[in-house]
């Protein structure tokens, strides 16, 4: 193997290593690049927090899921926007903390809009909580 080939292989391997470490050390993986584990309505997701299917939710933890439902509220804190979706449960919501690169789309959203959001499922308190969310689709007609 010539010296030139060894240098090129070294550069490629070094680049790959830096890329892998770079994601781990310096950033969080973009949710758009994560495979979707499940697609649910807000009702389907919230139903699973209250009935015997709740154990199924363990399979979704740290996985990306898509949730569709109407917007109850939109809040902003520390440059991070959170969309709260509601369904058929009076006191339970789906809380989606959006990735900061989604801020540019937030002006287009209003309470009552039906949206499809993909995010990383973290678990359930009173509400289901998703972080690193991205907007997939918006339907004004609800």
């Amino acid at each position: 193997m010539t010296n030139r080939k060894i240098v090129i292989i070294g550069i490629v391997l070094g680049g790959l290593l830096l890329g892998v470490l770079g994601i781990g050390m310096f950033g969080v993986k973009d949710t758009s690049r994560i495979k979707t584990k499940a697609k649910l309505s807000t009702n389907e997701l919230l139903d699973r927090t209250t009935n015997s299917d709740s154990l199924l939710l363990n399979d979704y933890i740290e996985k990306a899921i898509e949730v569709t439902g109407p917007i109850k509220d939109i809040t902003t804190k520390d440059n991070k926007t959170t969309i709260l979706l509601h369904g058929g449960h009076a006191s339970k919501l789906v809380i989606c903390e959006m990735q900061t690169n989604q801020n540019k789309y937030m002006d287009q959203l209003s309470k009552g809009d039906v949206v499809n959001i993909k995010g990383v499922f973290k678990g359930v308190l009173l509400d289901a909580i998703l972080l690193n969310c991205i907007l997939i689709e918006k339907n004004n007609n609800g």
């Binding site: 310096f26 969080v28 993986k29 678990g123 308190l125 972080l131």
Partner: peptide, 16 residues
């Protein structure tokens, strides 16, 4: 009530 997985770190390796 605090969901521990919902803490966000600057570096994802720290979060892991």
């Amino acid at each position: 009530s605090i969901l521990m997985r919902a803490f966000v770190f600057e570096k994802s390796l720290m979060q892991e």
